[in-house]
Amino acid sequence: MDFVTTIIHPVANPIGAAAFLCNTLGFQKKSSSTDALVVDNGSVAVRLVFRPAQEQGVLHVELQTQNLGAATATLLALPAVTLLQERVAIGDTRLESRLQGPYGIIITVAQEFTEDELDILPPLPTSLMWDGQAESCIRQILRLIPIDFRDGARLRITERAEMLAGENAAITVTLDNALQALADITPHFQHPLLLSALQQQGIDASDQFQRVQP
């Protein structure tokens, strides 16, 4: 089922609320009638309907940003915007600040961090046991793979290494299995970079990479 979805915000001053949304959050006025004003930003529409002050509702708006500090400071510089909570951690990869705006509008400013920004090495999605050095080596080396491709690479290296372990009837993945999997699933042009990075870890993987024909 396809619908055009609009969020309804009961507010004591629809005109003021519309002005705030348009001037600060990039909305545009779409239509107005005697009983409501509709604003939208291209992906979501808000229908502002008049209600007496005691019946005013709350409109939660979330803004995604790459710079939580700067975005929060910019919003706090606006009149009638105050800080509710600052830099709340949500899980391992997300920070939020919450601001009270005018007209019953609460603004959540959120920043998602990549594993690089957080400086963490996520665990491998393993099914078998892994030798400590093998796991640590692969988690480190995955840093060299562009972030957009990394989740896929992490999964494929793990699966491949575990299948290689199975060929020796092992339930523990060894460093040799892990390096061979790395060589098998990465494009050939990346091999010199990977070999060099492994050498910096004190690991010689030339045998495993030579087994893979270009």
């Binding site: 099914s127 078998l128 575990e162 299948m163 290689l164 372990a165 199975g166 060929e167 020796n168 009837a169 339930i171």
Partner: peptide
């Protein structure tokens, strides 16, 4: 548990 069936079969 999840096991690699085909590699284990080849080995066995």
């Amino acid at each position: 548990v999840a096991l690699p069936w085909w590699p284990l079969l080849k080995n066995a």
